[in-house]
Design a protein around this nucleic acid. Structure first.
Length: 782
DNA sequence: ATCGAGCTGTTTTTT
DNA sequence: ACAGCTCGAT
């Protein structure tokens, strides 16, 4: 029998009545009418459409406090879901501080995944798992798939494990178990994908493991097939709150709908204009359909913005207006007009970085009549992480302190994963994936051959790889140096396992012993590469992080779901991050470089998803602009080195969409190459002649851009804005044209198919190449 | 078994 | 440009 009748064992802490009675509803103080409505409409479905900077977190937390204060629900009867641990933590803290001392955290406030793990541990047996199942990270997932691909004699080139992984993730995001994958979907991949999917799921079950997608998928499956279980939770969770609803995927949506099916008290908070995760399965449709999905829903719009100046808001609105099918929201503010959005063009990416570096330095002192800004008040938000390099290079040379936010997370680093694999293996010796990871790390002379033998032994006897290794050693399958090393490893694992059970050995000490005795620390000490010291440093940090937990097991449990990267903040620094990473943040001064068609909006995104892709890019632009409180500076470069090749580009179409009365076009100081830097936006589009002329679109740089584009038939902005893929290099070439390719040299185009060109090269013969790697022969980029 | 030269495919990222 | 990987040489 399952044990969900112990639900209320979790942190049922009744609110102290006197804490609430002391001051009547202080948490409602200072809320505007819309916020107050969102807080007080407790029953029935509510959609809180909260624009950027409209105080949604405040409203959300006040709502929770209101639920508690009115006695509508106890803390453990509220289900509050977020996407990130950071958001969950913040909400917990804010609810805590609004309530004053007393509240033991809300047990059901957390990320979708964290909550699903908690639920799934209780009901694991319903999907054929044990409740101590492990959660695989992306790395394990890929390795597992690779094995399956190999075992099926599938061509790895045509079906890379990564690709299959994203296919499977996509299905899981849509809550599709292997049998439910639509025929059209499956046949597009020759049914190979679904076969592997099914095998992969079976293998996960054998390993008593799940991947991230499974956490949701399994819970949806359980709710759908066990109405009794579902009912328990429907009854238990009297109120449901969802943050960032526009980012939910189909599986999350189904999960929510199922859970909300009882009381129907679900409050979803989100902003359709900030949906930027479509590429990983988020469905804007979920938020757009809310009123249909939940009949009788109250829709509350938070439109008063407390973050940005009117110019910035107007610029953002101007851009987002280009999207179809929005729920519609117009942000307004009482703030002073402030600075217009500033726009500046540059000759190339390096100059853009140089200019921004200098502008940041001037802004520190105060410039152009603006107040001085501290470094930590400024941020650079880029579309793609490779853009960061130019800034890092530049800032390093001029000694401007900066920090990169996002990027590889601590727990994703190689050395951390290796160390964790050792820990995992000590805690659960049957963790085959962990064993595979470390069996020959550090090098123990156990190559493919030897590992194959262990696999065979394990499979034949139906035991784990560690036990397989034991048997192989007994039978003398692995001998020599490798054999000795393997024996030592297996014995060490046993020893560490016993130590893990010994209460007298602190687990942090054990961790150090494991890393030392395994030779893992020594491996990095002996390595002379520049990153080795950093890796050792990270290992130390890992051991330190262990201090916050009671034992290795507890630590591993948490780490599986918490991939945070809380870098210690020391001193004021300019932040550099992607637009995606910036969602939810705000800065007094924001720089938005790289607004060029192809880069932003991203060529790829439009290729793959057409108009939907373009709209998502536009939302990204909206998110970018609305991060700025006081100063927003948009820039673009006429030329940029991409994949080692110089490419020229036109200013982003989003620049045309900025309402001109809210934009000030800056001309860079004439320090570098005269007027070259002052390439202006496309003159005939959004910007008036006056504005365009004022900043010199007659400059040589701009003219050159234009004439280059002209040769390609790309210069007419009016045309280029109507079609989605027009900037694709496809239209740039004609058959018979003489072209140059970096690797193959000169040749003549004989056919064009989509974005691929068939070219007869003088030296290399006939090849098919992607159009953007080819340039017209008489026009090699400057 | 392991090391280094050549090939490929290059957005965005959380859990 | 470059990282990550496969394949051939030690």
């Amino acid at each position: 029998m399952s044990s969900y009748d112990d639900i209320d064992a979790f942190g049922a802490v009744p609110l102290s009545a006197r804490a609430m009675a002391a001051r009547p509803a202080p948490y409602l103080d200072g809320l505007n009418d819309a916020q107050r409505a969102a807080v007080e409409q407790l029953d029935g479905p509510v959609l809180m459409l909260a624009g950027a900077g409209t105080g949604k977190t405040r409203a959300l937390t006040a709502r929770i406090v209101h639920l508690l204060a009115t006695g509508k629900a106890r803390p453990n009867e509220i289900l509050a879901v977020t996407f990130t641990n950071k958001a969950a933590r913040e909400m917990k803290n804010r609810v805590g501080s609004m309530l004053g001392e007393a509240v033991e955290g809300m047990p059901w406030l957390g990320t979708f995944h964290a909550i699903c793990v908690k639920l799934l541990r209780r009901h694991a047996e319903l999907v054929g798992l044990k409740s101590n199942f492990t959660i695989l990270d992306t790395d394990d997932q890929i390795r597992l798939l690779k094995q399956l691909v190999l075992a099926n004699n599938i061509d790895e080139k045509r079906w890379p494990a990564r690709m299959i992984a994203s296919l499977i993730d996509g299905w899981k995001n849509r809550a599709l178990v292997p049998e439910k994958v639509p025929v059209a979907d499956a046949s597009a991949f020759n049914h190979r994908g679904t076969e592997i999917y099914a095998q992969y799921q079976a293998r996960l079950k054998e390993l008593n493991a799940t991947d991230f997608g499974d956490l949701l998928l399994h819970m949806v499956t359980i709710f759908q097939t066990h109405p009794d279980v579902l009912e328990q939770y429907q009854r238990w969770f009297r109120y449901i709150l969802v943050d960032e609803y526009q980012d939910t995927n189909v599986a999350q949506y189904m999960w929510l709908r199922l859970l909300a099916g009882g009381h129907k008290n679900i409050c979803c908070v989100g902003d359709d204009d900030q949906s930027i995760y479509g590429w990983r399965g988020a469905e804007v449709g979920n938020i757009l359909r809310f009123e249909k999905d939940f009949p009788g829903a109250h829709v509350v719009r938070l439109e008063q913005n407390y973050r940005s100046t009117p110019h910035i808001l107007a610029a953002a609105s101007g851009v987002i207006r280009g999207n179809q099918g929005r729920l519609g929201k117009e942000l307004w503010t009482e703030a002073e007009r402030g600075e217009k959005v500033r726009l500046i063009g540059h000759w190339d990416g390096e100059e853009e970085a140089r200019w921004i570096g200098e502008e940041i330095e001037s802004m520190q002192k105060g410039t152009r009549g603006m107040r001085p800004y501290g470094l930590d008040e400024m941020a650079i938000l880029v579309r793609a992480s490779h853009q960061m390099r130019a800034f890092e290079d530049r800032f390093l040379t001029i000694g401007l302190p900066y920090k990169v936010i996002g990027g590889p997370r601590f727990y994703e680093r190689l050395e951390i994963r290796d160390a964790m694999a050792y820990f995992r293996l000590v805690v659960s010796p049957e963790d085959d994936l962990a064993f595979e990871r470390i069996v020959n790390t550090p090098k123990r002379g156990l190559g493919d051959k030897a590992q194959q033998k262990l696999q065979v032994k394990a499979r034949e006897n139906g035991v784990s790889l560690v036990d397989g290794a034991r048997l192989a050693l007994q039978d003398g399958d692995v001998t020599g140096k490798g054999g000795g090393e393997l024996r030592f490893l297996v014995e060490s694992l046993d020893r560490w396992g016993r130590m893990a059970g010994d209460k007298d050995i602190p687990h942090t000490e054990l961790a150090e012993i494991i890393l030392d005795e395994s030779g893992y620390t020594a491996m990095w000490q002996n390595e002379k590469t520049p990153e080795a010291p950093g890796r050792l440093e990270n290992l130390k940090e890992l051991v330190k992080a262990l201090e916050n937990f009671d034992n290795l097991q507890g630590f591993l449990e948490h780490v599986a779901l918490i991939m945070d990267n809380d870098q210690a903040e020391d001193g004021a620094k300019v932040s550099i991050m992607t637009l995606h990473a910036a969602k939810g943040l705000e800065f007094p001064a924001v720089f938005l470089p790289g607004w060029e068609d192809g880069l932003f909006p991203s060529h790829r995104s439009m290729d793959e998803s057409g108009i939907k892709g373009l709209e998502e890019e536009r939302r990204l632009a909206y998110v970018g602009i609305t991060r700025a409180e006081e100063v927003c500076t948009i820039s673009f470069a006429g030329n940029r080195r991409v994949f080692g090749q110089w490419q020229s580009a036109l200013p982003s179409r989003f620049i045309d969409e900025l309402p001109e009365e809210h934009v000030e076009v800056l001309t860079p100081p004439g320090l570098y190459g005269g007027g070259y830097g002052s390439a202006a936006p496309r003159p005939s589009a959004g910007m008036s002649e006056r504005v365009a002329a004022a900043d010199g679109y007659n400059s040589p740089g701009w003219k050159r851009l234009q004439s280059r584009a002209g040769q390609r038939g790309l210069s007419q902005p009016s045309e280029s804005r109507n079609t989605v893929i027009d900037l694709d290099a496809v239209s740039a070439f004609t058959t018979g044209e003489r072209v140059f390719h970096q690797k193959f040299g000169y040749g003549e185009i004989i056919a064009i198919e989509g974005d691929k060109l068939e070219i007869s090269f003088e030296k290399a013969g006939i090849k098919k190449v992607v159009a953007r790697f080819v340039t017209a022969a008489d026009d090699i980029p400057f």
